[in-house]
């Protein structure tokens, strides 16, 4: 896990902020990386999160937060370049490889990641996890999709409704 190191990186120009997960673990990261989160960006711009008083994130546990920060640290340089028009093909390929690897994870981890990306409003991560879920759904039957996404099994009423829809849109299943 690329948990951010604390301490000696501070003498450079990069400003650091502290984030506190729901289970009270403290993470120190560069402000630029944390600012990928729309939610955090304003607080950071206001000068929050520095020094001793970190920003508490009661919705995100430490395992998820370290994963989220891994993403932010990797993507922060490209984001700073404004979508990186001058990034080389190699850089882009590397980010793509990282992204693919990044979402190659257990479903429960993916779920926490979706919630964290949503709560922290990290645009790139939201798209990435949405794409991953879309790929998981592709080629599955409605019942399989419900199970994949952890929806409860349909009630008899819902089942009847599903069957009726199946009949109506039967051509779509061919």
């Amino acid at each position: 896990m690329a948990a951010p190191e604390s301490g000696d990186g501070n003498n450079g120009a990069a400003r650091m902020v502290t984030l506190i997960s729901s289970d009270n673990t403290r993470f120190e990261v560069e402000a630029a990386a944390a600012s990928l989160s729309q939610t955090l960006q304003l607080t950071i711009l206001d000068g929050g999160g520095g020094g001793g008083d970190g920003i508490p994130l009661p919705n995100v546990d430490s395992a998820t937060l370290s994963k989220v920060l891994e993403y932010c640290i990797k993507h922060a340089p490209a984001a700073a370049n404004g979508g990186a028009p001058n990034a080389t093909a190699v850089d882009r390929a590397e980010l793509e490889r990282f992204d693919n690897e990044f979402v190659n994870i257990d479903q429960s981890v993916l779920y926490s990641l979706i919630m964290a990306a949503h709560n922290l409003e990290i645009e790139g991560l939201q798209s990435l996890v949405a794409k991953k879920v879309a790929d998981m759904i592709k080629g599955k039957s409605p019942m399989e999709i419900r199970r994949t996404l952890g929806f409860p099994d349909p009630t008899p009423e819902e089942q009847a409704e599903m069957n009726a829809h199946m009949l109506e849109y039967g051509w779509a299943y061919e």
Binding site: A130, A134, P142, I145, F151, Y169
Partner: peptide, 17 residues
């Protein structure tokens, strides 16, 4: 998630819930 699917896929996904 859903907006990435084509129209014909969405027809199939209608029945999910």
């Amino acid at each position: 998630i859903l907006e990435s699917f084509s129209v014909s896929h969405l027809c199939r996904l209608r029945t999910v819930c």
